[in-house]
Nucleic acid binder design. Sequence first.
DNA 1: GTTAGCATGTAAGGAGTTACATGATTTT
DNA 2: AAAATCATGTAACTCCTTACATGCTAAC
Lengths: 202, 202
Amino acid sequence: MARRGDTIELAVLGLLHEGPMHGYELRKRLNLMLGWGRVLSYGSLYPALKKMLRANLITEVADTTTPVTRRPRITYEVTEAGNDHFQRLMSEVGPTAWEDDNFDIRFAFFSSTDMEIRLRVLEGRRSRLQERLARVQGELERTQAEVNRYAAELQRHGVESVEREVRWLSELIRAERDDESATPSTTQAATQPAAPRATTND
Amino acid sequence: MARRGDTIELAVLGLLHEGPMHGYELRKRLNLMLGWGRVLSYGSLYPALKKMLRANLITEVADTTTPVTRRPRITYEVTEAGNDHFQRLMSEVGPTAWEDDNFDIRFAFFSSTDMEIRLRVLEGRRSRLQERLARVQGELERTQAEVNRYAAELQRHGVESVEREVRWLSELIRAERDDESATPSTTQAATQPAAPRATTND
DNA sequence: GTTAGCATGTAAGGAGTTACATGATTTT
DNA sequence: AAAATCATGTAACTCCTTACATGCTAAC
């Protein structure tokens, strides 16, 4: 079962899916990808890579591209076992998958899974957010008469943000569904289907 | 200097500012307040309270409201030292204050500080977000030609969200400034000045 | 009668950050 | 010549979560 700490593992496997890479580059790509909020440090990346090596999820590969003079870089590649593990992690549904960071990682690597999984993750995330929304709004009604203007404004802004997020997810879900009906026989199809890009103004 | 872990301390002091409370209630209020994302567990709240007791930031007070039959609740109150500490933490500017969680807590307790601090925090937060935006957009231009549709969409959505956040902050800063000019002599004034509530559609 | 909520705590462990250590190379 | 960036790693430490422990009360 996916524990919280599998986040780095999933991220590394997802990135290596696009081709071999060395640690430093992995960190850079990852921080760009999830640059909002927490940033990954070497202190957690390198040990994680070592652990994954031991677990046979990745292997070191001869680095052909190092410009000779440079410090030799350690380039990693996914193994078959690594790919299996990646697919397993991606298709795991349940609490851990809906949380902010975990969702983002999964979403970023959606291209490497199939639509069935994508829809499950998107829908799961959406209902999770809707639950939160309902809970907070319920409690606000009971606790109402909030004296604190600023706390109230923070609440309001929070609710608004989550509502936006829900609309975004709904757009994406709709797009995925349209894809389905638009692709009659092509199973793995990479025929540039309707981009998930939501309209700029809503 | 404010370390990351002072978040709970700040939150507790801020809430007790509104009146005495016991642990269970503190947790509930806090989770409602920052319910988006991580939730505070007893495992961190109670030890933190003990620590604050030892540091003389709070004191136990006789609980008059427990309905006799009930398990006696331990009600806490801020000390003078606690209030000093609270004001010091609130007025501390610098990296820690601009990060997501820390900012939210500070914002929620804005009523307990003065406008000078509020403006500094709001502006600090805004420039922090603008920096991030600039960095990410710069790196996107260089790294462009992103093959991955989904990763690109995540980026787009992230940028859009941060841009919204910046507009929200600008609204709030404007509102604070308007307040300033609207209150000529009243220094601590609680004269219900222009609510920080932003217009629903922008 | 049993689930949910009130109420307070402790112990162990996980995940990741900070700081340290090292050194080459590219840009300013 | 200095500063930034490339590049890899380790050790200590912090903070927090999870799981356990306990027991009462209100609601269904």
